[in-house]
């Protein structure tokens, strides 16, 4: 058990330590480590965690880590995965704040970050393609995907509203199906 906890902690520490640019930038690493390498969740579940993580309080990366840890080893798992994902931040930020006052004026740091940002673009693009393949299964999904993306690119609306609308739509479709089934049964 202890070995499993340690593996969970180290996996999430590795993910946290190489995530540049917040929760979405974590996606390629999560797909690789959590879905492909260990099979701890499916791609669908990962999408659901992101959806819930968007509209629950707190940092998305933390919410997703808690979800996966909880799924694997219950409450201790949730706590361990979360501590893993934040551990590198705490160490790195403390070191920067304590030791290096002009860290971001350093020429090497600036250029390295420039290169990393370009790579992150490509990695997120690939993660998006994978997610779209998983999330868009039929024409209803395709319509929702295109419409949501169009709205998001034109207006800056909160992800919470997007999630709320999508859930509402799902509930309406389900209710309509139930209604239709009832009518069918009456005939």
């Amino acid at each position: 058990m202890l070995k499993n906890y340690l593996r969970l902690f180290l996996t999430f520490a590795r993910i946290g330590g190489f995530t540049f640019g917040g929760g979405y930038a974590m996606l390629p690493l999560l797909q690789r480590e959590v879905v492909e390498k260990y099979g701890w969740t499916t791609e669908e579940e990962l999408m659901d965690y992101y959806a819930v993580g968007q509209c629950t309080p707190g940092v998305i990366a933390v919410n997703v880590a808690t979800f996966i840890g909880k799924k694997l080893y219950g409450i201790p798992g949730g706590i361990i995965a979360t501590l893993g994902v934040v551990a590198p931040s705490v160490i790195i930020i403390t070191l920067i704040a304590a030791l290096i006052s002009n860290f971001f004026e350093n020429e090497y740091v600036i250029h390295a970050l420039g290169g990393i940002r370009a790579v992150v673009c490509a990695l997120i693009a690939q993660a998006v393609i994978k997610m779209t393949k998983t999330g868009v299964k039929d024409w209803v999904g395709a319509v929702i995907f295109v419409a949501t993306l169009a709205v998001l690119l034109v207006f800056s609306i909160s992800p919470i509203i997007v999630v709320a609308c999508a859930i509402a739509l799902g509930l309406i479709i389900e209710a309509a199906k139930g209604h239709a089934a009832k009518k069918g049964a009456q005939k």
Binding site: Y50, A127, M131, T134, V136, T148, L152, A166, G170
Partner: peptide, 17 residues
Amino acid sequence: SFYTLRPAVAALIASAA
């Protein structure tokens, strides 16, 4: 809910990208 939520989340992530 998750059936309609997943394409929307894919779009959210695409717009973030």
